[in-house]
Amino acid sequence: MEKAIKMKSRELNLFYGNFQALYNINMDIEENRVTALIGPSGCGKSSFLRSLNRLNELIEGSRISGEVFLDDSAIYEKGINVVELRKKVGMVFQKPAVFPMSIYENVAYGPRIHGIKKRSELDEIVCRSLQSANLWDEVKDRLVAPANQMSGGQQQRLVIARVLAVQPEVILMDEPASALDPISTARLEELIAILKTRYTIVIVTHNMQQAARVSDYTGFFLHGCMLEFNRTEELFLNPRHNKTEDYITGRFG
């Protein structure tokens, strides 16, 4: 069966000033699958993630060569609307940064930015997004409460709801569980399993068990190169590269 490729990178190099952070990354990201990026700190996995929604551009002095495609459009092409790209490629960060406003306003922020003004429409989006993020039952009676009073796990799910409210096609997650306790982490992983039926997910994680549990594909990064990319079981059971094996068996990292 032909695999549907949602995003792909071709010969992607990334530089911060004189420092090269990524070397020749070629990756196919399959639709409705979870792709995990693993590797030691500073290996370039987060940089790669951030080049998928052009968030690297916020750093002064960063530039790329090579190409990244979303469906069939090259996202670094001149004339590409970054706003449209980021609507389609949402991102969940390591630290859940809820805005200092109510739970409702946090979720409604994206849709409002993109021009939805009608209250009934917003109400519906907020409700649907919170339900999809498995948060609705916990917060439905206090939507007007300040979001920063929620627990860390709830905040992370609120951030996911905020991303879902923009109706993305791809969701990038940058170590989304690193600040969460084990129970919240388990809930997040359940959520990822549900979300992948409707979205394409790329997740950066430090936690190898997590990568093995949630992902279909895994890429192993080292010193800015992607050493290995394969189906997750394959990569964990029969790593082709001995560095991969060293890393997943905990010999370094």
Binding site: L58, V83, E84, R86, K87, Y109, V163
Partner: peptide, 14 residues
């Protein structure tokens, strides 16, 4: 916090 700006931009805000 810088994270506020990143999150807002990542949601497609200008």
């Amino acid at each position: 916090p810088r994270e506020y700006r990143e999150n807002s931009l990542a949601l497609g805000a200008s």
